[in-house]
Simulated scan of single mutants.
Amino acid sequence: MSDFLLEPDVIFLNHGSFGACPALVFDKYQHWHRQLERQPVRFLQRELPGLLADARRQLADYLGARSTEVTFVANPTFAANTIARCLPLASGDEVLISDQEYGACRFAFQFAAQQKGFRIVEQSIPLPVETDEAIVEAFWQGVTKNTKLIFISHITSTTALTLPVAKICQRAREAGILTMIDGAHAPGQIDMNLEEIGADFYTATCHKWMCAPKGSGMFYVREDRQHLIDPLVVGWGWGPEKTFHRENDFISNHEWLGTYDPAAYLTVPTAIDWHKTYFTQEVRQRSCDLARMAVDLSAQIDGIERVHPDAFFRQMGLIDITAHQVEDHVQLKTHLYDAYKIEVPVIRWKDRTLIRVSSHAYTTEQHIHTFVQALKETFST
């Protein structure tokens, strides 16, 4: 816990919402703030292009992509809006999503659908799942001759389910369908290689499981698809007087949108170094084991069930408390915090009530036991 800035009296089991930043990483974040303010003109005009290029290169290396295919964005919601607004989708076209997609990104496509007239098809992936093949087959039932884009999560936010995105992307490519993957929860939680995944578009946060500062996200577009993506915001990066990267329209269009604070982006390499040094495979496995421990122990309580087999989740475990007929899930979340200082999301999804437990390097066995005891006491009354 001492490596992080989290309040020591809070049992923080909600890394999945906004992440948490190690002190070492946050110190570097403040360093970049100071560098900017010491000489803003020099920093923004003369130093920033090279600094961003280096940060982007390190991020691309970490994710298994080329640096010309990755640009920084504030968050996946921004990237989802870019795709939804820019792709030539029209009346008669369909965008296929699962029934477990993140609300803000789903809203981006719903808004664009109202403007352009294309249709969103939401395909159910029944829970619990048993195999990757079963997931692909269930999802593929939503594909029609009108499907132009598949938009699906790598690890779902609401249900903490790891989806076989590489298999879905491969099948989509064979069918001539574009793919965009919402990887908000993937980098830092699982090892990944964007080239091997094979998506046309991929977006993720760096501030969640990579533990970079808030407001650092990435947007990957394969080089042969970049001509499809116009900038959502037009600034100095566009046109004949490009400020940055005149040799690459995709980077130039998306990297300089006007004056902004680049400190979160520039801190991403430090977060990557922190992961390589401190969040070793041993520590990551321990975090996964604690999430599974939370699920296993909770499922021993009457009226609580596990949702996924161990193979389908990593550092976010999910339990189903629907049988307890919780009338107000927000009130339950507040109760767990006020009574036990446990920060954990209680989620209403379809007709089910779920609790998603996140574990990271700062999580201890005692945290998990306190959480389980809190559930026992709460549901015994």
Rank of each mutant, 00 (worst) to 15 (best):
L6D: 14
N14G: 11
G19K: 03
A23K: 15
K28V: 10
H31A: 01
H33G: 13
E37V: 11
E37F: 06
V41P: 00
L44K: 11
E47A: 10
G50T: 07
A53Y: 02
A53H: 09
D54Q: 14
R56A: 01
R57W: 00
G64E: 06
G64F: 02
G64K: 10
A65S: 11
R66K: 06
T71S: 10
A80G: 15
N81H: 12
N81P: 01
I83C: 05
C86E: 14
F109L: 09
Q115P: 00
S124R: 13
P128W: 10
V129D: 11
E133P: 00
I135S: 06
E137W: 02
E137P: 06
V143W: 07
T144N: 08
I150V: 15
F151E: 03
S153W: 01
T158I: 03
V165E: 02
A184S: 13
I190E: 13
G198C: 01
A199D: 05
A199L: 02
A199G: 03
T205D: 10
H207T: 08
W209C: 02
W209T: 02
K214H: 11
S216Y: 04
S216Q: 04
G217L: 06
V221H: 08
D224A: 03
R225T: 03
P231Y: 07
G239T: 09
P240D: 12
K242E: 06
F244V: 10
F250D: 05
L257Q: 09
G258L: 06
D261S: 06
Y278S: 09
F279M: 05
T280Q: 10
D289N: 15
L290K: 14
A291D: 12
M293D: 12
M293I: 11
D296H: 15
Q300V: 02
I304W: 10
R314K: 14
I321H: 08
H324D: 04
H324G: 07
Q325C: 03
H329G: 00
H335F: 09
K350Q: 13
R352D: 05
I355P: 04
Q366W: 12
H369Q: 15
F371I: 12
F371W: 15
A374P: 13
